[in-house]
Every structure is written in structure tokens, then in C-alpha cells.
Design a protein around this nucleic acid. Structure first.
Lengths: 136, 136
DNA sequence: ATTGACCTTAGAGTCTACTCTAAAGTCTAT
DNA sequence: ATAGACTTTAGAGTAGACTCTAAGGTCAAT
């Protein structure tokens, strides 16, 4: 299949597929006579694999490691894959916790404000943002 | 005070303060004879205000709106400030929910894997990432 | 007078992951 | 033959928010 079909089937754009190739994540083994990239089902599986990794929040760098494990499993151990996953879990948990702090602070801001058509002269959102005591 | 002191007191770097100035968020009214920026306590309050907005997750564009409300409160209504806050709350809630989906998927990945020194030949993390049935 | 810490500017570089452009070549259907 | 859809490349542009650089000027203390 050509790049357009791979794009459609993998959920990545043709641009992105070429970009991943330039980054070394994807190798293209076949070219047509007219120099078009020709992919097979294994390539589609790889593209989907990358997409799934990205959807799970892994960076391209992390995807690269997964790909290298995937391409030569006996040369790697489970701990390799689990380590990246555990680190990502920590990362995501931290991010969530940070966002929850922010959310709490935002709710405090919002709840204090009438939100009406009154002049903002006494607006407690601006007051709170201006006030040292209302830290995040 | 000069920019270094403002930086220290506001928690922003001198670079960042100059950057905010270039972006139009901060105005400098005073210069020393040697062309150094000279700030007063009101400037410090403004810098802290901006920092607090940033810490709450507001973009520079949103901070600009808050600053304009703050600089002329009678010209604005509470609804102006509350609207931005409500939108940010939605944004943060959505982001949290997205991250929680990812987290669940990551835990599923991780839990299935032994994580030991066994060869990755049967590694269920790689398997799962390779498998259509394990969508995020 | 010299050191070292601070300040100035315009402008370039960083990060991540794309996303797009231009100019050209190819393929398929009518 | 011609349109229209697809592909090729190198390279530039995008987002947001900084962050840094170079080359120079200023200031306080020794």
C-alpha cells in the first residue's frame, strides 16, 4: 500500500508518517518504480503500534525504546518495558495532582465571584489574584 | 528597584520580566540615568499578579485580559473575569479526565507485566501495545 | 584601576511534535 | 489529452513560553 492508505489505516497523517521516518521510528523497505513508498501489513502494525504508544502519552523518545524492544524481544527483559511504563505512570500522576491543585484554586476563585453584570470594582477574582494570601 | 531585585521578589527571572515587557504585559515607566529599568512596589504587585495567574494555569493571553480588568475595574464587569475562570476550569477538568483515562490504560499495561529479568519475548506490555483490542 | 556583579539590546535558540509549502513527478479515469 | 488525486523532496513554519547569547555599558568595593 502507498502512504495515503497507510495513513488512513493507521490513523496517522502521511505527513506524520514521513516525519516519523525522518526521526528513525519507521523504516521503509520498499519503493515502487516511481519512487513511491510501499508498505506492507507489518508496516501497518508498526504504525499502529506507534500511534497506540502516543495515545498512551509516551514521547517519541520513549516510543523508540518500545520499538527496539518490540523488534528484538529476546534481547530485552520485561523490566525494560515496565520501567518506562512505571515512569510514565508517575509522570501522569504528578501532572494530575498538579492540575487538581490548580483546579481547586480555580474553583475558589470562581466561587467567590458573583459573575454578574456588576462592575468589577469589587471583583473577588481580581482581588484574589492580587493577594499574597491566595496561593495556589 | 532594578530588574534583579524585582526578579528575586516576584519569583520571575529578569529574562522573563523583559520578555513580558516585550509582550506588552508589563510597562516600565522609569529608567535610571544609565538606562536601567527602575521599578516600584506597584510594579512588584503587577509582576506577582502575573506570576499568580501563570501558576493557576492561565495563558499569557488570558493574563492580559485579567490585567486589563485589573487596570480599569469600573470599565469591566465580574462576568468578564468569571468567564475566563470558568473556561479554564473546564479546560483543566478535561485535561485531568484525559490523563485519568491514560493512567488507567497505563496501569493495565503495567499490571499485566511481570517486570522481571525474564526475556521480553512474552512481555505483555509490548503485546498490549501491539494489539488492537487494547485501546486507550 | 580592576574585579565582579549587575544591567542593556536585538535577536537567535530551545522544546516537542508535528504541519505545511513549493515545485515537481505519477497515476487513473474519462 | 486533460483533470484531479496522489506522491516526492528539502526545508520552513507553528505553537507557547520562555531562555540564552554576544557584545557592550554601569556600578560598588577594594
Amino acid at each position: 500500500m502507498k502512504i495515503g492508505e497507510l495513513a488512513k489505516k493507521s490513523g496517522l497523517s502521511a505527513h506524520t508518517l514521513r516525519f516519523y521516518e525522518k526521526q528513525g521510528l519507521i523504516k521503509v523497505n520498499n519503493r515502487s518504480e516511481s519512487n513511491y513508498r510501499i508498505y506492507n501489513n507489518a508496516d501497518l502494525d508498526s504504525a499502529k503500534f506507534i500511534k497506540r504508544c502516543r495515545d498512551m502519552g509516551f514521547s517519541l523518545e520513549e516510543v523508540e525504546v518500545f520499538l527496539s524492544i518490540r523488534s528484538d524481544r529476546p534481547a530485552h527483559i520485561c523490566a525494560d518495558a515496565k520501567k518506562i511504563t512505571a515512569e510514565k505512570i508517575n509522570e501522569v500522576e504528578e501532572k494530575i495532582s498538579e492540575l487538581q491543585h490548580i483546579l481547586t484554586a480555580l474553583h475558589k476563585l470562581s466561587d467567590a465571584c458573583c459573575g454578574g453584570n456588576e462592575s468589577a470594582e469589587l471583583c473577588s477574582i481580581i482581588d484574589a489574584l492580587d493577594n499574597d494570601n491566595e496561593e495556589v
